[in-house]
Design a protein around this nucleic acid. Structure first.
Lengths: 231, 231
DNA sequence: AAAACCATACCCCGAATGGGGGATTTTTTT
DNA sequence: AAAAAAATCCCCCATTCGGGGTATGGTTTT
């Protein structure tokens, strides 16, 4: 059977890791609404040396109490849960147990979901098609202070740092916007750029038109969100 | 000279393979000022099937022309380079060849350097103590659209998404600040929170005092930079 | 050469903002 | 129960800001 086949391969992989000297017992809790996946995961974890599943739950509501009691090292959390969403669950859990490592394991890969999960406090993000051996590695990695992510997710996260967004602002306008983002007033910007306050006003008018905003705070907010400036 | 010899061989190798139409070959360039490391890396890469080193350079200045000519798939880049820094180099390279994957390989692990490198356009960040096998995996991973990072770096990156900073703002003040960060006016905030504009004004006065700022744009800027709000 | 764009600068005016007071009620902490 | 903190509301006033014009000189594109 395919499932058992996977487990077997995974365990082979783990043996290799064991030989490398990784020998701490890692306790894991699972929050996953699909029964098959949930139980497969539990089998995988309990069937692997140095891994122990200390709780399997079909929803966050049912998980919270047990997780607080068991204090597992790592929680495998689905996102698309009934009732309290995985994202909300992560927030709540991290508030109760700040040092816990929450590893998202889901089929959802929309950018916003990924970022929401990480903002909420997840330490890693894996797609459900992750092979068993890699999943075990990822749990280990989470517990070792890492942040395992599926290939595409990792790139997504890294690219979020890059200022890609080319607005249609001119160089001077970008310069003025940068000063706005430092909280400067018209007058201060004028002094910094050695131009008249009226010119600053003119640039800002154009910036507002191009960004479709109507105030400094809105412009600053947009600049930060869309990474229009290099501070 | 050894360097030229290797370089020559590398180039020959690549051309031959290209002619044969073998496309899974990953071409790599190395920018690293330490000669020992540089040559070890080249040996490792050239000694591995499907990897080919198509240029090794001791500085960015010496690398730029060759990299543009060779168009390698992946560049292994040190940060602490003489002359043009690795960070600057990444920016320049990504501007010239946007699709190139730049993998930082360095001993520096200060948070700011890591973020600077990623902002500049690096697709991954490895410490120099990465074992050879993992380094090769990381190069492969970079080329497959991933973002390989050393354990600690990955966690650092993921944690950067989390709103850790607990300011001394009250709940209501944080709420008001959140609305400011959406670019709302006093009046709009008052309407949203069902309180008078005067109360909004009062909250904002207190926010300014606590954040030590004197305008909306400054407050918004600080809120974004220190992740005081959950947008 | 004409047109378009950019950076510069000025005027007017009403609305929004920031800083200074003071005050009451509710909630939380001690 | 008392004290402290938080949230609510009000007034005054000078400054800043946002939107509406207009204009000139320089560059770039067409």
């Amino acid at each position: 059977m395919l499932l058992n086949q996977r487990f077997y391969e995974a365990e082979l992989g783990r043996k290799t890791l064991s030989q490398k000297g990784i020998s701490e017992m890692i306790t894991v809790a699972i929050v996953e609404d699909d029964q098959d996946i949930r139980e497969s995961l539990a089998l995988l974890i309990n069937g692997t040396p140095n891994f122990s599943c200390v709780g399997i739950y079909p929803s966050f509501e049912k998980a919270l109490k047990g997780i607080i009691r068991e204090q597992p090292d790592v929680v495998l959390m689905d996102i698309g849960l009934p009732g309290v969403s995985g994202i909300e669950g992560i927030k709540i859990l991290k508030e109760k147990i700040p040092e816990i490592d929450i590893l998202v394991l889901t089929i959802q890969s929309e950018d916003q979901v990924v970022f929401d999960a990480l903002c909420a406090g997840a330490c890693g993000y894996l797609m459900k098609d992750t092979p068993p051996a890699q999943l075990l590695d990822a749990i280990q990695e989470s517990h070792s202070g890492g942040a395992p992510m599926s290939t595409r997710i990792a790139r997504l996260v890294v690219e979020s740092f890059q200022v890609t967004s080319h607005s249609n602002l001119t160089q001077r306008e970008t310069e003025v916007l940068t000063h706005l983002c430092k909280g400067k007033s018209y007058k201060m910007i004028a002094d910094d750029l050695f131009i008249s306050e009226e010119t600053v006003r003119r640039h800002i008018k154009n910036i507002y038109r191009k960004l479709e905003v109507h105030s400094k705070s809105e412009a600053v907010a947009k600049a930060f969100k869309e990474k229009l400036v290099n501070l």
